[in-house]
Write a protein that binds this DNA or RNA. Structure first.
Lengths: 354, 354
DNA sequence: TTGTATGCGTTATCAG
DNA sequence: CTGATAACGCATACAA
């Protein structure tokens, strides 16, 4: 009676089946008549295995349906080497989608698997999500931050986690980041309106806690300063995040006793909301938005935008991350991408005569 | 001379520092003056730890900056219990974004961390991506499949991986899935055009290898059959995937000797492409698209669509996955979601008089 | 209520 | 070129 007759028999002889039902390296090794270490070598493409042996191992792998256990490997190695994480506010929205595809493109070109997780626009969840990713032994993380204080990352950074910020800079810690030039972009968009003669330009944006918001407002202010025009604080509205509330905000601003004759909106959702409100008004209001969107050129009136390149932003962030992973002690790098004013509509909306 | 004087000394005494620079449970235990098991209890919220001890442990955790090592835990446990994966073709596009947010919503409600990975519209990458996720010990995976043969998943399914298909059914294997009713939706949209009197309706879609495409074409055929109208194969175009190629296709179909007077498009990108082409024509062409999109109601002419609910689709898929994880041997479930015809534009475009 | 011993599946070290 | 052995950090029995 051989050992094979008693597969369930305990004792030092025999290779126990793993609890998960998946075959292990030890089983593959036994089937191929080699040691586990040799199987490991074949799987990881390490040199020093003769072709015939490798082939035997490959066959055993195929026959048993063996799958590499990444958790075990990463535990044994100390840290994962081929996975990076991306934490974004939400998967919805063209901007994040494009940013993610830029990250992915570069990640794949460098043999890295990308894992995306969402923080749901919630600072607490942001922290949880990042730590969840870190505890899964990713080699590095790209964060589009929501929160205003990233000191909670100090522990991770000290322990060697590579972290890069995208679209918004880190706050209260030092780290690599890639951004678009929000100040210059907003300044250019608002200057475009000022050049047309507008003097009462509304600004509609998010809360200032989000850095991009503050920067775009700063650009709006700079444009006014450059043109020698005072900003009326009553025309600056911070808070709307969806289409209906933006519609309401714009309608209010355009029907003030001394109304806004133009508006600058801070992202494409707000731009669409503002555009819808303008359509309902009897008086035309000029509009420039930050970030381009589908059909902006064919709606009537078409919308002039400050276009950014989210795909490129993602690529840059991933490059920064790769560099940080390779050189943990390198100096911090910052990438600032330019924006591009896309003027649409031949007949711009002029300000009313006084 | 105590052991502490020789921190680097080998031997059974002393707790070695981990290679990653991150503190381990053993270090926390030592700092708190308890055993590793007690630390484990505190971390996992297991009962049976007196408050004062727990507090000591918490303090040690905070001071050392301890982070749970998920890889080690998942190895020791045999399988991750709180992570699920979602594999989609690409993050870009409103449909996938909304689907993902539906999945995420339910995942979070059930304490599951969601990891998203993209297959880049490539069947080979789809397989790699799924296996990569599986090797990371996720508890289950939701797949929006691209490939036409999923037998490669048999190994994973046998070994206990929970897999659910979303938006498109599995092929050549049995598994849970959640879909929208593509046949009925397309039939309703095309019937809408037939009721207006159109007899030459173009169909523009993707390759038939993608199941949704075939189903929507079937709906198109059924609508014709129900109305007693023959389908002209020359009006069925499969292949365009981007806006320019769709524009070209529609322009060609609308300028045939016996031209199409209406078109049904299979997804929102194709709809936008068709709409742009129609704008350039001197003759009006009626349009109905599958899947709704931003601004479809305000462009001129507005676009009637067969709307689906991708968020709900994601929710359903996640529910199926949770059920499958809980009951690995349950019967397979299939969820078919209805679509909704959204008629837009008061003045529909009539077919030309003969 | 707390601790001890053992194993999870893989990789690294070093010997053959 | 290949194999034995010892970690890796945590969880699970079971014992105290």
């Amino acid at each position: 009676m051989t050992a094979l007759s008693h597969p369930a028999a305990p004792g030092p002889a025999g290779t126990p089946r793993p609890r998960t039902g998946r075959p292990t390296m030890a089983q593959v090794a036994e089937a191929a008549g080699v040691s586990p270490k040799t199987v490991s070598r074949v799987i990881n493409g390490e040199p020093g295995v003769v072709a015939t042996t490798a082939e035997r191992v490959e066959r055993a792998i195929a026959q048993l349906g063996y799958r590499h256990n990444h958790a075990a490997a990463s535990l044994a190695r100390g840290r994962t080497q081929d996975t990076v994480g991306l934490v974004i506010e939400g998967i919805a929205g063209r901007f994040y989608a494009e940013l993610a595809s830029g990250v992915e493109e570069v990640a794949r070109a460098h043999g890295q698997q990308l894992l995306i997780a969402s923080s749901e626009e919630n600072p607490d969840r942001e922290r949880e999500t990042i730590l969840a990713l870190a505890s899964r032994q990713v080699g590095g993380i790209i964060v589009v931050p929501r929160s205003g204080d990233h000191r909670y990352l100090r522990t991770e950074l000290r322990s060697g986690l590579a972290v890069v910020f995208a679209d918004r800079p880190p706050q209260r810690i030092k780290a690599d980041y890639a951004l678009v030039d929000n100040v210059a972009g907003a300044r250019e968009g608002v200057t475009h309106l000022l050049r047309q003669g507008h003097r009462r330009i509304a600004f509609i944006g998010n809360e200032l806690a989000v850095a991009t918001s503050a920067d775009r407002l700063e650009g709006y202010r700079q444009a006014h300063r450059d043109a020698g025009v005072d900003v009326d604080p009553a025309l600056v509205v911070l808070g709307p995040t969806d289409v209906p509330s933006t519609e309401a905000a714009l309608t209010r601003l355009a029907t003030l006793p001394d109304p806004a004759t133009a508006a600058f909106t801070q992202n494409s959702r707000l731009t669409m909301g503002a555009w819808r409100a303008i359509k309902q008004l009897d008086r035309p209001v000029a509009l420039v938005g930050f970030d381009d969107f589908d059909l902006a050129d064919v709606i009537d009136p078409p919308v002039t935008v400050v276009a950014q390149d989210p795909v490129e932003l993602g690529r840059r962030a991933m490059h920064l991350l790769l560099r940080r992973i390779a050189h943990h002690n390198a100096r911090h790098h910052h990438d600032i991408l330019p924006t591009r004013l896309v003027v649409r509509g031949s007949g711009e909306i002029p300000p009313p005569r006084r």
